[in-house]
């Protein structure tokens, strides 16, 4: 009996320890949902803290639970905006490594792994878009100062790179058993990155002393992105993507 009692105790301890992952996930996921709706400076600071907490929980967890916690950490860091900038890449690196370590890699937790992979390029696109909005604000009489030439082109280059990354991830996402909504959302993100790139390219034309050759060369690169979207059946109408409200504080 004594043996049997010890066994029951062991089972209870194991259950309590392992149960913690699901409970933690529930708590952290709920906080992510609440904080991401608030969209204030304070909530973004809390999201950055939430990202750290989820990352720490992920490190002490394993397998698919670890991946789920990294998904919370990655999305939290992304949504924290500038406050979470330094966290995004380390978290997504660790999260991707956790996905790669799963028995069937991303197929074991398709939505979570896809979100982890998307978080870094989308966080970078958000950062670039904040820079773009700042540059748009430099316009005076329809013109930007010549000093903005390189920064505007840099934003275009960066967005083009993120478009390429999200498109590459999308090619994998469509082979996963994720809901169709997830695939449509991924396409929407590609369209958002594309449209921001179009805006950066167009803004280049407003910069004082912009080179026509460079402008036309960038137009060809923009067209390549257009073609990639259209091949996947996505209409490239940027008027369908509304401006994010108050995001320049984000």
């Amino acid at each position: 009996m004594r043996r049997a009692g010890g066994g029951l105790l062991l089972a209870a301890v194991l259950a309590a320890g392992a149960c913690a992952a699901g409970a933690k996930l529930d708590t952290l996921d709920s906080q992510l949902g609440t904080l991401s709706k608030e969209n204030t400076e304070a909530s973004r600071t809390k999201l950055a803290a939430l990202a750290s907490q989820a990352q720490a929980e992920a490190k002490s967890s394993d397998g698919v639970n670890r991946v789920a916690l990294y998904r919370v950490a990655a999305v939290s860091a992304w949504q924290a905006g500038a406050a979470g900038q330094s966290q995004v890449l380390p978290i997504t690196d660790e999260g991707i490594a956790a996905c790669d370590a799963l028995p069937a890699k991303d197929r074991t937790a398709p939505r979570d792994c896809a979100l982890i992979r998307l978080a870094a390029p989308l966080a970078v696109q958000d950062d670039l878009t904040r820079q773009l909005a700042t540059l748009q604000g430099h316009a005076s009489g329809g013109k930007l100062p010549n000093a903005d030439l390189q920064p505007v082109q840099g934003v275009f280059d960066g967005l083009e790179t993120q478009f390429d990354k999200v498109s590459t991830i999308r090619a994998e996402v469509v082979t996963l058993d994720v809901p169709n909504d997830f695939k449509l959302r991924t396409d929407r993100q590609r369209l958002i990155v594309y449209c921001n790139a179009v805006k950066a390219w167009s803004l280049y034309g407003d910069v004082d002393g912009a080179s026509l050759d460079t402008f036309n060369a960038l137009a060809q690169r923009k067209k390549q992105m257009t073609d990639r979207l259209e091949v996947d059946g996505i209409a490239t109408d940027c008027r369908a993507i509304p401006t994010t409200q108050g995001f320049d504080d984000k």
Binding site: G22, D26, D112, N196, K199
Partner: peptide, 28 residues
């Protein structure tokens, strides 16, 4: 229980979008 928590619907946020001006539409 963990599986139930993991597979619940999760947040997929939207990326930020800058202002798409009239001139941007004309140019593109």
């Amino acid at each position: 229980f963990n599986q139930f928590e993991r597979d619940r619907p999760a947040l997929f946020p939207d990326g930020l979008s800058a202002d798409f001006r009239q001139i941007d539409f004309i140019r593109t």
